[in-house]
C-alpha cells in the first residue's frame, strides 16, 4: 500500500492506495466523492475527467500514486457558497445535459478551456470537448452552454441570474434507505 496526499477541492486528504489503484477509484472510493464517473476505463469517454493542478485529466488513465501532492478539482468543487459556478449555470440554462453522467467531464473540460481562452469559437469548443462523449444531447446544447458561460464570465457577472435561483441551495438526494 502507498500513502498518497491529495488536495481535493481545497481539502487535504491522505489515503492508502495500492500501486495499481486508478485516480478515479481513489477519488470515488477513498476520498468518497462520487460525482466523478466511470464510463469506460479506457480513456475514451471522459466521464471521469478532473482537473489535476489545473489541467484536465482523465482520471481513469492515471494511477493515484502519480497524483501524490496534486491539487485536484472535481465536479463537487465547482459551486461555491454563492451558488453554482457560471459554467454550471450555463449548462442548466442551455439544457446541456440530460442524464448527467457525462457532466463531470463536460464541466471540468469547459472550465479548463475558459481558463485559457475566454472567447472560444466553435472550433475551439469542439476541440476541447471532443474527448468527452455525450449520448443524450448531440452536443449542440453543450456548445451553446460553453458560449453562454464564456459570455457571462467575460461580463464579470458570474451569477447573472434571477434572485430566486441564486438563493436556492442545491438539494442533495436522500441517502439510500437500506
Amino acid at each position: 500500500m502507498n500513502r498518497v496526499r491529495l488536495k481535493v477541492n481545497g481539502q487535504e486528504h491522505e489515503i492508502e492506495v495500492e500501486s495499481c489503484t486508478l485516480l478515479v477509484h481513489a477519488i470515488r472510493e477513498d476520498v468518497g466523492l462520487t460525482g466523478t464517473h466511470v464510463g469506460c476505463l479506457t480513456g475514451d469517454c471522459g466521464a471521469c475527467t478532473v482537473l489535476v493542478d489545473g489541467a484536465s485529466v482523465k482520471s481513469c488513465s492515471v494511477f493515484a500514486v502519480s497524483a501524490d501532492g496534486a491539487e485536484i478539482t472535481t465536479i463537487e468543487g465547482l459551486a461555491g457558497d454563492e451558488g453554482l459556478h457560471p459554467v454550471q449555470q450555463a449548462f442548466w440554462d442551455e439544457f446541456a445535459f440530460q442524464c448527467g453522467y457525462c457532466l463531470p467531464g463536460m464541466l471540468l473540460t469547459t472550465c479548463e478551456l475558459l481558463d485559457r481562452d475566454q472567447d472560444p469559437d466553435d472550433a475551439a469548443i469542439d476541440q476541447a470537448i471532443n474527448g468527452n462523449l455525450c449520448r443524450c444531447t448531440g452536443y449542440a446544447s453543450i456548445r451553446s452552454a460553453v458560449r453562454r458561460a464564456a459570455t457571462r464570465m467575460a461580463a464579470g457577472d458570474p451569477d447573472a441570474l434571477p434572485e430566486s435561483q441564486r438563493s436556492e441551495s442545491p438539494s442533495a438526494e436522500p441517502p439510500p434507505s437500506a
Binding site: 460525482g35 472535481t74 453554482l84 442548466w92 445535459f97 442545491p170 438539494s171 438526494e173 437500506a178
Partner: peptide, 24 residues
Amino acid sequence: SSARKEGGDTLLTGRGRFVDDYTL
C-alpha cells in the same frame, strides 16, 4: 414552457446518485 430540468443542480454539483454511488 421550457422549464429547466428538475433537480438539475443536484446533477451539476455531482450529487446525483447513480447505482455505482450506492454503498451498503
